[in-house]
Design a protein around this nucleic acid. Structure first.
Lengths: 153, 153
DNA sequence: TTGATATCATTTGCATACGAATGAGTTTCC
DNA sequence: GGAAACTCATTCGTATGCAAATGATATCAA
């Protein structure tokens, strides 16, 4: 069979290196690429806000006023990262900060009216982003994929 | 039916906000968390190299000497990003740079002997990283997930 | 009550990640 | 042959992302 012959030729070709470790097949590498693709789709739909900034606004809409740290926990950002995100949202007038009356360590974050308007306006676009990200999959595949991805996250 | 009554109560409860957009359910958000988890697992196994740095070394092992840009394409990094990664690998003596004789625009990158030793030594650890990342899934689920993830990436 | 411990926030330092602009070299094509 | 278009690399600016160190405040427990 010439097919097998060709296979042998390929395997034995050139250098004696065994490339049985293939970067393109490792979850971490594919995960990074899938994430990149999603961020790119996000940017195409929502140009003036990053995914983390959007996440902060969306979560504040869900839970209302919270401490900066607590918000970070809810959107999976460490303290240093969430600070930068909130600083930039505050500079744009989308969130406002205040000190917790009782626990003086806490910095409370809340949506401004502009922030609330923004997130309500953006949510329909976010639905499109999710759809476009999942567009390569069928409805059944989407259900399966989402379930398995959630297990990994 | 008390089930329906409870449902109505939930829907009508408190504030008139409809939170039918749930951040935690959006692919982008879960993708970001899954990626974070993988990076964390990677760091626990390979502390002195980042996933992008590892990817660069692993790909150089596969393809041998290439231009910096071409390498970037192979590991999904834009020109600006790959430059930083290669700079740091060069500073540590894991790769070496040279000018392309014919096309003077190109900067050729290759593994040094130290770089080759390093990547050969790290590949077994990388296999463990892949395994641990996928540990929450069964063998069948891993096959399904990997296939679907690849479609998205 | 006070001393150890824990939590919240900030800062610094380093490493991706990417858009945009720039400069140098190469290819295309008329 | 030469101008236009393209490619490779670098630089700048901005935005995550995280470890580690620090300071302020709170909580717990002896």
């Amino acid at each position: 069979m010439s097919g097998e012959d060709n296979l042998l030729k390929l395997v034995e070709a050139e250098e004696p290196e065994d490339h049985d470790y293939l970067l393109q097949e490792q979850v971490g590498f594919i995960l990074r690429k899938a994430h990149q693709r999603h961020v790119s789709i996000f940017a195409a739909h929502i140009g003036d806000l990053t995914p983390p900034q959007f996440a902060a606004l969306a979560k504040l809409r869900d839970v209302g006023e919270t401490s900066q740290n607590q918000l970070g926990t809810l959107i999976a950002m460490d303290a240093a990262t969430v600070k930068g995100v909130i600083d930039r949202l505050k500079a744009r007038g989308l969130v406002e900060l205040s000190k917790h009356e009782v626990d003086k360590r806490r910095l409370l974050v809340n949506l401004t009216p502009e922030g609330r308007d923004a997130i309500e306006r953006l949510i329909p676009l976010a639905r499109e982003i999710t759809q476009e990200t999942l567009a390569p999959l069928s409805a059944k595949e989407i259900a399966t994929f989402t379930k398995l991805l959630a297990k990994l996250a």
